[in-house]
């Protein structure tokens, strides 16, 4: 009882002092629910670096990997909503309801979306010397030979798996799924000729594209990639309905003060506008996600609805 009272008092004191001083007056933890080194981690670290510079505060990245990102997400949404614990998440979040039978939260969006840091188009890749020169030839072959063309993913229920399911439904083809442990291994499988194609976001593809080890048949998004203008968009390649874009965003626990959320949204978009950030994102053929906080919320809800449709017609078993 005494301890509980003490905790309440301490919390109140720390909360009030947090508001009294200029935010941030102590280190802000940016929790990444993925292992260090991946795309989300790398982008989060860059954002943290820029935020630290701009606010003269300290933003520290903390990796909390596990269970398809749910462990880190759960930790953040249970943290004190004081703006000192933030979450870096990616498009995988919108898939979670269709991967797990039960999630450790009830709400559709259990946090306040702050800003989208990066938008990454999805490209369809075949090996550099593959017989498929364009999307139409691949789709036609797959239509004539169901269950023959193989595609690699980062495992059953991973984001590339969902992307590939959406692709199959949009193109009206049936391909053979070859799961790998992580998208990186699937890429290795592609360049060593084990599989015919992968659907990955641009950061994983850039270096292999430059070396001509892989060929991109189409890219998602409304316009071609600045760094690879030869790659047609899906619409140009004959699949106008197909548009999956992966994203990396920053969120805060529900209840975080509005001022802090909007301050962070402004700071992050300011960071995204800086030239070194543009170079950094451009280097991996990603784009700055210049959205208001409620635009991000809409994005998550749209994604949720889309994947619900895809999952309904796909053969993806829930855990």
């Amino acid at each position: 009882m005494c301890i509980r009272l003490l905790i309440v008092i301490c919390t109140l004191v720390s909360l009030s002092s947090a508001f009294a001083a200029e935010y941030p007056d102590k280190p802000v933890r940016l929790v990444v629910s993925w292992a260090p080194g991946g795309a989300v981690d790398v982008i989060a670290r860059k954002v943290a670096q820029k935020l630290s510079e701009q606010t003269k505060g300290t933003f520290v990245v903390e990796n909390k990997p596990g269970a398809t990102g749910t462990i880190g997400t759960q930790q953040v949404i249970r943290s004190a909503p004081d703006g000192y614990t933030l979450l870096a998440l990616d498009n995988t979040f919108a898939l979670l309801p269709f991967v797990f039978k039960k999630l450790p939260w009830e709400q559709e969006v259990p946090f306040i979306p702050i800003a989208v840091a990066a938008l990454q188009p999805v490209v369809i890749l075949v090996k550099g010397d593959s017989p498929y020169k364009d999307l139409a030839s691949l789709v036609n072959y797959a239509k004539a030979n169901p269950d023959t063309v193989t595609y690699g993913t980062g495992g059953a229920g991973s984001a590339p798996h969902f992307s590939a399911e959406a692709f199959q439904q949009a193109a009206g083809v049936k391909l053979m799924h070859v799961p790998y442990k992580g998208a990186g291994e699937a890429m290795t499988g592609l360049i060593s000729g084990q599989i015919d194609m992968v659907l990955l976001s641009t950061p994983s593809a850039v270096s292999q594209l430059k070396a001509n080890r892989v060929r991109a048949l189409a890219t998602s998004g409304n316009k071609r990639l600045a760094s690879f203008p030869n790659i047609p968009t899906f619409a140009e390649a004959g699949m106008p309905g197909f548009g999956i874009t992966n994203w990396v965003g920053i969120a805060a626990p529900l209840g975080t003060p509005k001022e802090i959320v909007s301050r962070l949204n402004v700071e992050i978009r300011k960071a995204l506008d800086s030239s070194d950030m543009k170079d950094f994102l451009g280097g991996m053929s990603a784009e700055a996600g210049n959205l208001e906080a409620d635009g991000f919320l809409r994005l998550i809800k749209e994604e949720n609805a889309r994947w619900a449709q895809v999952a309904k017609h796909a053969d993806i078993e829930k855990q």
Binding site: G37, R45, V206, S207, Q208, K210, A211, R213, G283
Partner: peptide, 21 residues
């Protein structure tokens, strides 16, 4: 995992690790 992290470090530095390095 260490090599994966090195690749991440390269990307942060603006280098795309791969055959072109």
């Amino acid at each position: 995992p260490v090599m994966a992290l090195m690749i991440g470090a390269m990307i942060i530095q603006g280098i795309q690790p791969g055959p072109s390095v």
